[in-house]
Design a protein around this nucleic acid. Sequence first.
DNA 1: CGCTTCTTTCAGAAATTTGTGAAGTTAAGG
DNA 2: CCTTAACTTCACAAATTTCTGAAAGAAGCG
Lengths: 171, 171
Amino acid sequence: MTDTSGATDTSGGRDAESVSKFVESFAAQLVEAGMQRMPARIFAALLSSDEGAMTSVELGEQLRISPAAVSGGVRYLAQQHMVSREREPGSRRERYRVQGNQWYEALTNREAVLKRWESALGEGVTSLGADTPAGRRMAETLAFFEFVDGEIAAMMERWRVHRETRFGGAP
Amino acid sequence: MTDTSGATDTSGGRDAESVSKFVESFAAQLVEAGMQRMPARIFAALLSSDEGAMTSVELGEQLRISPAAVSGGVRYLAQQHMVSREREPGSRRERYRVQGNQWYEALTNREAVLKRWESALGEGVTSLGADTPAGRRMAETLAFFEFVDGEIAAMMERWRVHRETRFGGAP
DNA sequence: CGCTTCTTTCAGAAATTTGTGAAGTTAAGG
DNA sequence: CCTTAACTTCACAAATTTCTGAAAGAAGCG
């Protein structure tokens, strides 16, 4: 089965090549935005799978990477809550799943990041002096991030509503 | 002047050491969020300067880096619109300035990034087939980013208002 | 015009990051 | 229990990135 003619499916895409093309190009964007290469590729592969889930072996085959690389990449993604791990009961085999909305909730949950920025800025304000020009600038910056923090939560709430009306609210 | 006692200013901070401490710790956060090290450090230094602007030489001295590193870092920051360059007329010496609000407008202007993601996702939808499960998932993701796009603009508008009432609208 | 002062570019050394093979660990199933 | 299938960890080689010194390029100023 190494023929290049009709491939698996000509009707709506889904031949190995067009999937791979998308995976690599989307992963490249994620990399450019600061994600590491392997996590990005793994994530893109999951996103473009029909089930939204793949096993270690499947990932390794599609991306041509070692089990070790899959393991590392998946661990990162799980830590970031961008994928979740499942085990089909009664098998040591794991599947990694991208949970519909879960992942962009995670993406917007730069919350942790924002919190750390805020904390660093707060220290900056006190250590440089709240009454100095630099201190005032940082206090304003801090206020901005606090504002954003709150806004993002509200935005995600609006998204859930918007989504329901547009896609007929899946869970 | 290498004494460690009274330093330059004991009233509100602003001795070289506490500035540097803040700079490095804030830069570290930026790095963790994906920014390269030099740009991050340069940016943090500018942010914590009283004038909000420094020359090449000042940056080099505070951060202990070569002129080449300053040049590279500053170029990156300028491309991202996080700092602007000024020249005091009649001198080849340049100053790099963090423009109050300009920079977080830039930060939220991941607009370019979002656009590229959207375009990649769009290609994904057509290439995988809009009627496949994977295609639908990606279409929804795409919708999410389009939604975010719009929301961010609105959020920044609200911020400007919020800011005026809180800080007495500077330009 | 040529000197001087800044900035930028470039090639390369040093450090860091990345991905792999191989060994190690855990649990399912005989 | 022992075997086997899966995932994880680890040390290291390769690739990439990062920063520097040196040279080159502009632009003010005499």
